[in-house]
């Protein structure tokens, strides 16, 4: 390996150029505590990539939830606040209202955002807070080790639905993106996943837009990420990704749920 030329390797007369590396300035480098193959890690990485590429590290403030991603601030090298369970969007509201020119986002799981924090979620979106909400939906309470979430699929087993979720007993899994999209305060609502390279690329684009649209001050950008939970789904990471494809996506279809119009986006840098 030739040193002195950081982003190149010269070998056998060929010059190899660096084309991918995890973000070095916006990730702290601390090894993430997530289980092998966990989508949280990938989502963190993509988020950090976007912040690095947009060059907005100095203007970005994140809010971590309670849940598996409670330690997000250990990994993201930006100013962050740790919110009480479910209150991330209220905390983000507080930040954004007093620092309106900063980029503010929350990173929340399904239990945090769609169960205990439903009121805060709905109302911060309804007020059109100019924040980005990243909603990791893995259909289970991960941190407390596998209880039924509001998003757990019908028939899906968890420690508190050991015979599979019974819709008559526990209700249907909640589709948050579809629920909040009709609110005027929701500016951009989209659903992605991190289980294949193509989907990671799309998520990156969505998060980039999620940040950029904050400049317009026209409301919440809401990015749902369908993720896996190999440990609590009791599957290998590869099997859990197959489960996403086969079971999760038919119920939570990927794609844009609400897009801003061209007029809405006028003036965007």
């Amino acid at each position: 390996m030739l040193t002195g030329e950081k982003d190149c390797i010269i070998e056998d007369g060929e010059v190899y150029e660096l084309v991918y590396e995890k973000p070095l300035t916006t990730l702290t480098g601390t090894r993430m505590h997530y289980c092998p193959g966990c989508g949280h890690s990938t989502a963190h990485k993509v988020l950090a990539e976007v912040i690095e590429e947009l060059g907005i590290q100095e203007q970005t403030i994140g809010v971590a939830p309670v849940g598996c991603s409670v330690f997000a601030y250990d990994y993201l090298n930006i100013d962050m606040q740790e919110a009480a369970h479910g209150r991330a969007t209220a905390v983000a509201t507080g930040i954004k209202r007093v620092l309106p020119d900063k980029y503010v986002f929350t990173y929340q799981g399904d239990g945090d955002l769609a169960a205990i924090g439903t009121a805060e979620t709905i109302h911060s979106i309804n007020r059109g807070e100019n924040i980005m909400i990243i909603f990791i939906n893995n259909a289970v309470y991960g941190m407390t080790s596998g209880q039924m979430a509001p998003t757990t699929l019908v028939g899906m087993k968890s420690t508190t639905s050991p015979y599979g979720r019974d819709a008559d007993f526990a209700g249907m899994p909640i589709k948050v993106s579809e629920l909040i999209a009709p609110l005027k305060g929701a500016f951009y609502v989209t659903r992605h996943s991190v289980h294949t390279p193509g989907n990671v690329r799309k998520l990156k684009k969505a998060i980039t837009n999620g940040f950029k649209y904050q400049q317009l001050k026209k409301g919440v950008t809401f990015i749902e990420v369908i993720s896996n939970c190999p440990s609590n789904w009791k599957m290998t990471p590869v099997k859990s990704n197959e489960f996403i494809e086969k079971e999760m996506l038919p119920y939570y279809p990927l794609g844009d749920i609400k897009l801003p119009s061209k007029e809405d986006l006028a003036g965007l840098k």
Binding site: E17, P23, L27, Y34, P36, C38, S41, T42, V200
Partner: peptide
Amino acid sequence: VCPDGVIKVY
């Protein structure tokens, strides 16, 4: 797709 970002590609 590497969750832990351990792969560098040239």
